[in-house]
Design a protein around this nucleic acid. Structure first.
Ligand SMILES: [Mn+2]
Ligand SMILES: [Mn+2]
Ligand SMILES: [Mn+2]
Ligand SMILES: [Mn+2]
Lengths: 217, 217
DNA sequence: TTATTTATTTAGATTAATCTAAAATTTGAA
DNA sequence: TTCAAATTTTAGATTAATCTAAATAAATAA
């Protein structure tokens, strides 16, 4: 098995490469894992020895088959635990990430599959992110940022691309939670902010907020 | 906070001292944690520095106030997770210990208290062991080994002092699970084995088995 | 195309947890 | 009470993960 630390590197590489579509640099990984570049280089050598990544000095890194499988499995666990915390224990969507960061490293296939069943095999986590099934398949939905919508476009909020607690709490306060139907009523040219109607209410959000809310049209 | 490893030592000391009633030796700890005596000595120095134990060279060790509090909290988490695995996820009582060994190190008071409520604040775990409440109080029941019962004594199986999977599976097969009412029908002098009736059935168990089943009279 | 800046790797240390072998202390049998 | 056996501690190494500082390679600006 892989150590706690190795798992975190694999997950970081996976997320930084958008599911392995691009190579990832040493500095990016250092930033994401809050370590120094020199430490990352050491770990990349180890992961390459373990045949989990394709690594050529100075050229960046990608996950190979096994690396992807390992990373996706950790993400599956993370998201299932988040569902558990929200659906069964009553946590808010902004409170679950850090606990799931710990729970995702518990190693028992039996456990995670039973948890999956117990939760009713959910398709997405509390932030709208898809949950890989036990074979590692991920069902991606076509999501669009509110900032890319045109006037009079309508859609349903189905995800967020920023997971910080401050941001999630803000959305909660604004009533812009998952499942909410919205319509863009006006694009403000001056600062790029966006007016929209969400279930009878009217509100304006900044471009920065709009960029981080994802909808299904 | 304490490291994963420190937590395991604290738990080992707690269990070996029967909840702090006796001093524990270096070798006992080494045996329980599957390490060597030299490693234990190193860790005892560290735990003493952290003011979690009373340690005098060559004289054995006891937990102090904080040490007990920390150990009991880990045991609380272990037992609550075991209840979760059995009651909610459908695990058997012989399958949960190893997973709980990992889950017990997840650190979130919020999480464990919500889990406790979700489970209906259970008093005991799947093996009959009492679950400490959030203040650290443990409700001990007066339990007697079957091997100490006299002829015609009756009682309800309420705990086990051996937690191995082989033993628990055996009890399952014999129908001697928690809550089962038994009566001792005969004590076999020859080898100390014991005949008993358990819900209409008659069966004989060895002294070795009898020593590890606990009843409330 | 060369020089400078930026990114990455290497070298050498550090810390936590572990080990083996040797030294010190305690126990308990004669 | 004495001394051999058992227990415990110390000394010195090892491994994983990390760091800082220095060296090397790549990118880019002049
Ligand atoms: Mn998360
Ligand atoms: Mn999530
Ligand atoms: Mn257990
Ligand atoms: Mn138990």
């Amino acid at each position: 098995m892989h150590s706690f630390t190795e798992e975190n590197y694999l997950k970081a590489i996976y997320h930084l490469s958008d599911g392995n579509s691009k190579a990832v640099s040493t500095n990016q990984i250092a930033e994401m894992t809050s370590t120094k570049a020199a430490s990352v280089t050491d770990m990349l050598k180890k992961l390459a020895d373990k045949k989990l990544i394709n690594y050529i000095k100075y050229q960046g890194v990608t996950l190979n088959e096994s690396g992807i499988r390992a990373a996706v499995n950790i993400i599956r666990k993370h998201r299932l635990w988040e569902v558990f915390l929200v659906e069964k224990l009553g946590f808010k969507w902004d409170e679950v990430h850090d606990i799931a960061e710990e729970l995702e490293h518990i190693n028992s296939e039996h456990l995670i599959n039973r948890l999956d069943d117990f939760l009713g095999n959910p398709a997405t986590d509390p932030h709208g992110d898809p949950i890989p099934d036990r074979s590692g398949t991920i069902q991606h939905k076509k999501l669009v940022k509110i900032s890319e919508m045109k006037q009079n476009d309508s859609g349903t909020i189905s995800g967020v691309s920023e997971h910080s607690s401050v941001f999630l709490k803000l959305l909660e306060k604004l009533g812009l939670t998952l499942g909410t139907k919205i319509t863009v009523t006006e694009l403000i040219e001056f600062d790029g902010s966006i007016m929209l109607s969400a279930q009878t209410k009217e509100l304006t959000i900044s471009r920065e907020v709009a960029k981080n809310i994802l909808v299904i049209l």
